[in-house]
C-alpha cells in the first residue's frame, strides 16, 4: 500500500511516517503542501493531509485530487470545530483526525478505511 503524507511541518511528517513504518506501512511518500502532493500523488492508495498549509491548502488539494481518483483521504487538522469538520467532509475527504493525536490513531484509521472498502481483515 502506497501512502502519501502531506504536511507543511517537517516534524509532523516525521511523526506520521514513523507511526506508519511502525505499523508496517513502509511505502510512504511525503509532500510539504497541496501542490507538491498533486505532483507526487500518482499511484497512491491512501492520503493523509494537513489542512492549513501554504502554497495550496488541504481542502484545495482534496478538490483537485478528487477530479482523478476516489482513493481514500484522511485530513489531519487542528481545525476540530464542528463547522470545519463539516466543511472538510463536504470537500470529499473520507475521515479526519484532530491534532493533537497519538500514533495509534493513524493506524486505526487505516484499518477502519480498509474495512469499509472490503479490504480489511475478516
Amino acid at each position: 500500500m502506497k501512502i502519501l503524507v502531506v504536511d507543511d511541518s517537517a516534524v509532523m511528517r516525521k511523526i506520521m511516517i514513523k507511526a506508519l513504518n511502525e505499523g508496517g506501512y513502509t511505502d510512504v511518500v511525503e509532500a510539504a503542501n497541496g501542490l507538491e502532493a498533486l505532483e507526487k500523488s500518482a499511484g497512491v492508495d491512501l492520503v493523509f493531509t494537513d489542512w492549513n498549509m501554504p502554497v495550496m491548502d488541504g481542502l484545495a488539494f482534496v478538490k483537485e485530487f478528487r477530479k482523478t481518483t476516489q482513493k481514500p483521504i484522511v485530513i489531519i487538522t487542528t481545525e476540530g470545530g464542528k463547522k470545519e469538520v463539516l466543511e472538510a467532509m463536504k470537500s470529499g475527504i473520507n475521515d479526519y483526525i484532530v491534532k493533537p493525536f497519538s500514533a495509534n490513531v493513524i493506524l486505526s484509521k487505516i484499518e477502519s478505511l480498509l474495512q469499509k472498502s472490503g479490504c480489511g481483515p475478516d
Binding site: A10, T78, E79, G80, G81, V98
Partner: peptide, 23 residues
C-alpha cells in the same frame, strides 16, 4: 530547523484546540 518547526506546530495545535472550544 526541526526544533523551530516543532515549536510552531505546538502553537498551531494550541490555537486550533482553543478555537474548537471557543466556537
Amino acid at each position: 530547523y526541526y526544533v523551530r518547526d516543532g515549536v510552531g506546530e505546538l502553537v498551531n495545535m494550541i490555537a486550533g484546540g482553543a478555537k474548537a472550544k471557543l466556537q
